[in-house]
Design a protein around this nucleic acid. Structure first.
Lengths: 173, 173
DNA sequence: CGAGATGGGTTCCCTGAAGGAACTCGCTAC
DNA sequence: GTAGCGAGTTCCTTCAGGGAACCCATCTCG
């Protein structure tokens, strides 16, 4: 629906949003992830309009997040499965779950629990640094321009190049 | 925009989506995170409609993701800052960056790099198990109903209670 | 044989959200 | 006294989401 396309921005958040930022998309992914793979199943379990579901599935297949597979041929029947790209999006979903559990679950507790295969514990996902393995949150990093910065149709419109995070000082001066 | 409110679903993904699932929301968060805190700055840097920006900011403040702070009083001037809840959402943004870098950046490389304070390395965020510290992706977990499951106005409409992940077998049988 | 069910959509209309531009309002600086 | 800034609000248009109905091929039941 958003008329502004985010896919062309030089920002990985915007480009990720371009893929799954439409309403229902993450919930569709989640349901495919847990094994709800057929059109009618998805429609019934989500309560989504069939029209919108068809649009989303088409988009997600085009983005190579889902694959459309014929699982029966004579009445042609299709199911949607996760690609590698889509499976890694589910890792992102795990983080959404984590945040939702912490900030929106309330007293009832989390609606769903996750048991880690490797250790068998009920746990949750935590952000760690790929280099040192230590905890890595948004407050633990500096933001620097990378090689893919400023490669778009907009050459030098915005003056901000070096972004410093967390400088809470100067605004009150 | 989405007329279906996701906030009432017994799903942490849906509830997280309810907070930041509208277009522009994550980009607004990202910009506040990097220090773009004022209305006009946000509007100019994103190219968002002023109307939509005002709506989003109101919503995010109401959701306690952002706080509206008066930084000058006589012409009243406001800025938006991240709350703790909002800061933790930025951790989620780091994961969106990770996925976007891997799957949408292409040959140009990531537009933005992140340097971890603790180790000084340019790195990225990785999902780890909070219990054992090992890698934890969506394919490494079992999904189980939690205490907050089925606490809504819909008592027992859907038959699916135990969700088993990755059972790719029975559909082709 | 016809009736209904199943799966996977498409078509239609209606409402409401996004985009965009113009306008407001309090205050300051020249 | 007029220009300008910051922070919105108002108005209009267009397009996407919601919902219901419809379509089509095949299988199954009686």
């Amino acid at each position: 629906m958003q008329r502004t396309r985010f896919g062309d921005m030089a920002c990985s958040i915007a480009r990720t949003w371009d893929v799954i930022g439409e309403p229902w998309s993450p919930l569709i992914l989640r349901n495919v992830y847990v094994g709800i793979r057929r059109f009618d199943q998805l429609q019934a379990s989500l309560g989504i309009s069939r029209k919108v579901l068809a649009e989303r599935l088409r988009w997600l297949v085009e983005a190579e997040v889902l694959a459309r597979r014929e699982y029966a041929s004579r009445p042609a029947r299709y199911e949607y499965t996760l690609t590698q790209k889509g499976t890694e999006l589910c890792d992102l979903l795990l983080f959404m779950v984590r945040w939702g559990d912490r900030w929106t679950a309330g007293e009832a507790g989390p609606p769903v629990l996750y048991r880690h295969h490797a250790c068998g514990e009920i746990s949750h996902v935590e952000p760690r640094c790929s280099a040192c393995g230590g905890p890595m949150s948004a407050t633990d990093v500096d933001v620097l321009p990378g090689p893919g910065a400023k490669t778009g149709p907009a050459p030098a419109d915005e003056p901000e190049d070096q972004l410093s995070v967390g400088d809470s000082g100067p605004t009150s001066a």
